[in-house]
Write a protein that binds this DNA or RNA. Sequence first.
DNA 1: AGGTTGTAATCAAAGCTTTGATTAATTGGT
DNA 2: ACCAATTAATCAAAGCTTTGATTACAACCT
Lengths: 179, 179
Amino acid sequence: MSNEQPEPEHLHFWSFIDHAIERTSRELPGIDPLAMRLVLTLHRAANMLVYDLESTVHRPRGWSWPGFRVLFVIWLSAPVEARKVAELSGMSRAAVSALVNTLERDGLVSKERAPYDGRAVQLRLTDAGLEAITSAFRSHNEREQEWAGSLSAEEQKTLIDLLAKLTAHSTHFDARHRA
Amino acid sequence: MSNEQPEPEHLHFWSFIDHAIERTSRELPGIDPLAMRLVLTLHRAANMLVYDLESTVHRPRGWSWPGFRVLFVIWLSAPVEARKVAELSGMSRAAVSALVNTLERDGLVSKERAPYDGRAVQLRLTDAGLEAITSAFRSHNEREQEWAGSLSAEEQKTLIDLLAKLTAHSTHFDARHRA
DNA sequence: AGGTTGTAATCAAAGCTTTGATTAATTGGT
DNA sequence: ACCAATTAATCAAAGCTTTGATTACAACCT
C-alpha cells in the first residue's frame, strides 16, 4: 500500500468516491464495492442536505438544526416528556437535556415537573416557540421542495421505499441504536 | 394549533414520521408531504447508519467516525494538503485542523510544511495510522455489507442512482455547501 | 415498612463543528 | 520594489454529542 501517489491535485469532491472505490477494491480483497458506494453516497447526500437546510433556513434565524428538530417534536407531541423527545428525535437523553436548556434560555420551550411522576419533566412550546417553529417549518419545507424537485414523484417514492427498507431491515442484524 | 394532545404515549420512533406528516399537512396549507417524508426518511436512515457504524466499528477501537473519515481520505491521497482533505471529506478547514491535531497526538498522522508553499501543511499517515485504517476499513466494510444486504444488488444500484441524482441536482438551485 | 431494582434527568469530561477573526505566506498589478 | 488582494491554516467562542457517573424518584417484592 503506497502512500506516495504524488497527484492529489487531480482528486475532487465529485470524483473522490470513484477513486476510493477503485483504489480500495483493487488493493484489498474481500471488499464489497457496491456496499461501500451505497454508504458513501448516502452519507454524503444526507450531509449536503443538512448543511444546506441548516445554513439557508435555520442559522439565519439564529438557531441550529438540532434545535429545530427538538422544537418540531415538541410541537407535534406536547406536552411531552424529555425521554419521549429523545426517542422520537433519535437523540440521546443527555443531548435533549442540554438542548432543551438552551431552548428554554431562549424562551422557546417551557419545562415543568410532571405531576404524576416526580422524575419526569414535561415540555411545551411557549408562544414564541410556537410562532418560531411554524414560521421556520414553512421555510424548511420550501427548501425541502427544492431538493425533492430533483426527482419525479415516482422517483421520490422509490427512494423513500428503499430507504425505509434499509432501516427496517437494520433490526434483523442487531444494528445498534440509541437507548 | 393545539398543543394539548394528551397522548404522546402512543407515539413511537417508527410511527412518528407518519404522525408528523399527517398533522402538519392537515394544519398547514402548502406543505409538500412527499418532500417532507423524503427528507425525514433520508436523515433518519443516515443517522441510524452512522450511529451503528460508529458504535460497532469505530468507538470500540478508540476513535470516532470523523477521525475515520479523515484517516480514510489521507490514506487514499497522501501526501495531501489539509485544505484538500477538507474538500474531499466534506468538512470545514477548521474541523480538519482540529481533528488532525488529535490524530497527530494519537500518533496516526504526521504533519509537515509543504516545501513549495509556506502556508500549506502536508499530511501523511504514520505506520500506526496505516495499520489502523486498513484494519478498521475492513471491519467497516463488513458492517456496510450487513446494511447493504437488506437490499438486492439491483435495489442498491437504484438507491445509489437516486441519491446521486439528488445531490447532482443540488447545484441547480444554488444549494449551500462548504468552502 | 424496608430494601432492591429500575428509570428520568442531569452532570462531567472529552471531542467535533460552526462562524468569524487572526496570522502568515503567496500572487498579481503598478 | 511595493502594495493590495488571496489563500492556508489556526484560533476563539459557542454549541451539540457522546459515554459514564450521579441524583432523585418510583415500583415492586417480601
